[in-house]
Simulated scan of single mutants.
Amino acid sequence: MVTWAALRHLRERRLRADRRFGVRLLASAAVAAVTAVCFGLLLILVEGQWGPLRRLDSAAAQRLHTVALHHPAWTGTLRLLSDRVWDPVTLRAAVAVLTLWLLYRKAWRLAAWAAVTAVAGGLIGLLVKAVVERARPALQDPVAHAPGYSFPSGHAMTATTSFAILLLVLLPLVPRACRVPCWCVAVCSVLGVGFTRVALGVHWFSDVLGGWLLGLAVVALTAWAFEAWRADVGRSRTPVSEGLEPELTETSPEPGISPR
């Protein structure tokens, strides 16, 4: 028999859960807003050719280019990482495989989130490049070449969105003891991508920073939308450390409830 005290306790638990969800959802929206504002400010500084930023870009490009010219083995390693390991085609292929696996698992909405985030990130990056039309660094004796415009860095943006997708989808399947190393690998990879592009002389530092910020904004916005959907269907919001959908680990759905 259910007592009034038990009902009141259940109601209070639900209210606390709702408040926590609201705070976390607001935090997700705030992250998206802050990164979008930071990107917009950076874009204004790039378009306005702000002196301090130009000097920072030039100094970083010249210093790293000098190192690349005098250390061929180091430059070859950077090319391998940039053009093979962290190449946008490789990362997008990894996300495509993940999306197909999610479809196989009948995780329809999570698969849609992964696909939309990856495609939206790529299209937005191309659109901004076409609007800004920033030229790439013109260095003497270049060690690498890249086509197209410079701002934002497509490599940096693709790395940000791709590693975020992989982490937020697969974290529920990773043992807790291995989650911190996974985060470290993802963060180091995203930072490493940006470094290789500047060190190879095909991007300015501000290009890479713009790619990171824009990629983070795209992921934050789509993740916010996904979490809002979870609230609409009555599911609790989960911490970032648990991934977007912890139910992915379930082998069978609860009676009467679709896990996806």
Rank of each mutant, 00 (worst) to 15 (best):
R79H: 15
M157E: 07
S236F: 12
A107C: 11
L139T: 10
P239Q: 06
V198H: 04
L45H: 07
L42W: 13
R19M: 13
G211T: 04
I44A: 15
K129Y: 00
W212R: 03
A199G: 05
K129G: 10
C182F: 10
S236I: 09
P137H: 00
R55P: 08
E12N: 15
A118E: 14
R19C: 14
L64H: 02
V202I: 02
V218G: 04
V119Q: 04
L45A: 15
Q49G: 11
L170Q: 06
P142A: 07
A186Y: 01
C188F: 05
R19A: 15
H9W: 09
T75M: 00
R134C: 00
L10S: 14
A223F: 11
L53W: 10
Q140V: 12
F21E: 15
L41V: 15
G51K: 13
S162N: 03
V198L: 02
V37C: 12
L221M: 03
D83T: 09
S58Y: 07
A164R: 09
A156E: 00
G121Y: 09
T238R: 12
L103Q: 05
G201S: 03
S258F: 14
H155M: 00
M1N: 11
Q140C: 07
L78G: 13
L173I: 00
E133Y: 07
L214E: 00
Y149S: 12
G121N: 01
R109E: 06
V169Y: 11
S28M: 15
D207M: 03
T77F: 11
V218H: 01
A17M: 14
A5H: 07
V174E: 01
R24Y: 10
L170P: 02
V132E: 05
L41K: 13
R54F: 05
K129R: 14
G194Y: 08
A217S: 05
A17T: 14
M157C: 03
C182N: 03
P152K: 05
S162I: 00
S58N: 08
E12Y: 14
L166T: 08
A120F: 09
L244K: 04
R136S: 02
G201V: 02
L45W: 10
A68P: 09
A223K: 07
T196A: 00
L91E: 03
S241L: 14
L64Q: 01
M157T: 03
L45T: 11
T77S: 13
R79E: 07
T238E: 15
G243W: 02
Y104R: 14
L166S: 08
L7Q: 11
A135I: 04
V202E: 01
V218R: 02
F226E: 04
E133T: 11
P52M: 09
V119K: 01
V67C: 04
S252Y: 06
D57I: 00
G154F: 06
L127E: 14
R54P: 02
R16S: 13
L64G: 06
L10R: 15
R79N: 04
G154P: 06
A199K: 03
R176A: 09
K129S: 12
Q62C: 08
L221T: 12
R16G: 10
L216N: 03
R179D: 08
S150N: 04
V198Y: 00
L213D: 07
R13G: 09
S150G: 05
V97H: 06
V233H: 12
L248Y: 02
G215T: 07
T196F: 01
